[in-house]
Amino acid sequence: MSNDTDQLLRRILTDVLGLKPGQADGFDADTGLFGHLPELDSMAVAGLLTELEDRLDIVIEDDEIDGEMLETYGGLLAFAEAKLAEA
């Protein structure tokens, strides 16, 4: 399951950031996202979270979103896995 979530998250980031195939494979837990990539502004993050909801069939509440979960790839992956575990 966790491996599936990892792959799915890399696919969503590929779609949002317009990465070349395979480019997201280089993301590790410390890869910076929100605040590190200029193109990842609030509208792009909103799109990313909405896409995450649709593809994982989860609901993300406003108060669950914090800087930490969005700051790195590892943070976002841990959040997505936790949401799936409680679903």
Partner: peptide
Amino acid sequence: LRQMLRARVLS
């Protein structure tokens, strides 16, 4: 609207 509202909350 959901997405636009969320972007507003984030910014």
